[in-house]
Design a protein around this nucleic acid. Structure first.
Length: 487
RNA sequence: GGCGGUAUCGUCUAGGGGACUAGGACACAGCCCUCUCAAGGCUGGAACACGGGUUCGAAUCCCGUUACCGCUACCA
């Protein structure tokens, strides 16, 4: 190019087939494409590859949309449904037939299967032999006149097909290892590689970034682009995600659907952050990043060629990091509906005491890795009285009588405190401990059980503050009478 | 079997000829902090698959071996 031609605006796509939920591997491929588009001022497109009518379902298509939307990986143009384009796929295949780049193959499928089985029995690899399909003009005319079914096969030329892969560098395939593959089935429907190339050309895709498992499709697709007279896009093959046993991630490894993580209390930004780091590295030691930071720092040089193992422990840690650092209002917005679903309070009730609710969340979020854990630990802030956990009772209330006495004194002291502030209460109770000649813990631990029913909770003075004066005193009184009865 | 890809702590990774006694993070262990639990801080154990080259010098470049993964359909 001699003249200064403006660089083409990048166009990338995510092209899942709707045969299940949105898999974490797919989500990561989508993320890399999305990140690329955001980073390089490009366009991110979504194409639903629904040409396998037997396996594709609307339900799955919806699940993919929902997963993508939850993650915030939104697409820039209308969704393309591959199934709507079969007429073009068919036409492109026929263009190839007319130009001589492809030919008709009348070999029955059963014959192919037989030959393949035979070769396999011999321990050989079966490769379609072009001469099998050679027909004299008369024979061809006769078969055509008889309406005999035929598939269209691509005539793979001599030579080598290679491309500079964005993540792997140069990859080359000798064409002799590629068989004349079918592009149009005998029923007139297009085969995967044909449909993909036809659509990617139509969508003006400039970079095809997809899973490693497509590497061996790529030379076939490049050949198709050339035969169709289209510009070959860039390719980048990102590695697969494996389970802890090094095998392809599957249900055996636990949750693999993005939706599963959503329902387990993951934050989308944590999921994205974690996924980004599986197969990509910014090049330094910074790991916890917000979405804008991810976009800012993303670059194709950091993309890896090696498969990564999905480590849920690190994912949860990552979630904890995000949970602890995002604005508290954001946490409130996410957790409020979960609190409502748990039957603790309604969203509007929470909105009415927004500040109080955020205070509670501040206490809980630092101790939780998943939003579900926050909900599980929030109960004590919403009920009147609490149930005393048996283990907590036996551990912290071993001597019922003595404990009741201490709790009674604690109650009396708190009832007369000037202000219901943590520092003031702490001061008062530490003084009480000193007067009684015991350590602070001897007061705090039994008090914790009285207030929460448990041995673990946020700091006891924060609990007092957020449970509130009335309820706190009532719970302590209740604990005292419980202990008196059992002694 | 054929073709292709990959190879640094258990896991995610930094590293692109000398700065490497191989750095960080998760997980694990210990300590500190401390009213419990977290969070946080500190410390510890833990890796360049193997063999040949190239080079004054290799985790880094080349070749081979091995292992693992993927593809090998009128599936996508």
């Amino acid at each position: 190019m001699t003249a200064a031609s403006p660089a083409k605006r990048p166009r990338v796509r995510f092209a899942p087939s709707p045969t299940g939920f949105l898999h974490v591997g797919g989500a990561r491929t989508a993320l890399f494409n999305w990140l690329y588009a955001k980073k390089y001022d490009g366009v991110f497109l979504l194409r639903v590859e629904d040409t396998d009518r037997a396996r594709s379902t609307d339900e799955s298509t919806r699940a993919i949309f929902e997963g993508l939307e939850w993650l915030g990986l939104t697409w820039d143009e209308e969704v393309v449904y591959q199934g709507a384009n079969v007429a073009r796929h068919y036409a492109d295949a026929h263009r190839l037939l007319e130009s001589g780049a492809a030919y008709r193959d009348f070999t029955p499928q059963s014959e192919l299967e037989r030959l393949r089985a035979e070769a396999e029995a011999r321990g050989d690899a079966f490769k379609f032999d072009r001469t099998m399909a050679e027909l004299s003009p008369e024979a061809l005319a006769e078969k055509l006149a008889n309406n005999e079914p035929y598939a269209i096969r691509f005539r793979v030329p001599e030579g080598t097909t290679e491309w500079p892969d964005l993540v792997h560098g140069r990859i080359a395939f000798p064409n002799k290892d590629i068989e004349d593959f079918i592009i149009l089935r005998s029923d007139g429907t297009p085969v995967y590689n044909m449909a993909v190339v036809s659509d990617d050309i139509a969508m003006d895709i400039t970079l095809v970034m997809r899973g490693d498992d497509h590497i061996s499709n790529t030379p076939k697709q490049i050949l198709l682009y050339r035969a169709l007279g289209a510009e070959v896009p860039q390719f980048g093959h990102v590695p697969m995600i494996h389970g802890t046993d090094g095998k392809k991630l599957s249900k055996r490894h636990g949750a693999t659907a993005v939706g599963d993580y959503q329902h387990q209390g993951l934050l989308p930004q944590a999921m994205l952050n974690f996924l980004a780091l599986l197969g990509w590295s910014p090049g330094d030691d910074i790991e916890v990043m917000t979405l804008p930071e991810l976009i800012e720092r993303f670059n194709v040089n950091g993309l890896h060629a090696k498969a990564a193992v999905f480590d849920t422990k690190k994912l949860e840690w990552m979630n904890g990091q995000h949970l602890a650092s995002i604005p508290i209002d954001e946490v409130a917005a996410i957790v409020a509906p979960l609190i409502e679903r748990a039957g603790l309070a309604t969203v509007s009730e929470l909105a009415a005491r927004h500040e109080w609710f955020c205070g509670v969340l501040e206490l809980l979020r630092i101790r939780a890795r998943l939003t579900d854990e926050i909900v599980a630990q929030a109960g004590l802030f919403f009920t009147e009285l609490v149930e005393f956990d048996a283990d907590a009772v036996s551990k912290q209330w071993r001597d019922a009588d003595a404990t009741a006495n201490i709790l009674e004194k604690t109650h009396a002291r708190l009832a007369t405190v000037d202000s219901w502030e943590p520092a003031v209460m702490e001061d008062a109770l530490r003084k009480l401990a000193e007067e009684l000649g015991i350590s602070g813990g001897k007061i705090f631990q039994p008090l914790r059980v009285a207030l929460t029913g448990l041995t673990v909770s946020p700091g006891i003075f924060d609990v007092l503050l957020y449970v509130g004066r009335e309820r706190s005193l009532a719970r302590i009184a209740n604990a005292v009478s419980y202990l008196r009865q059992s002694s």
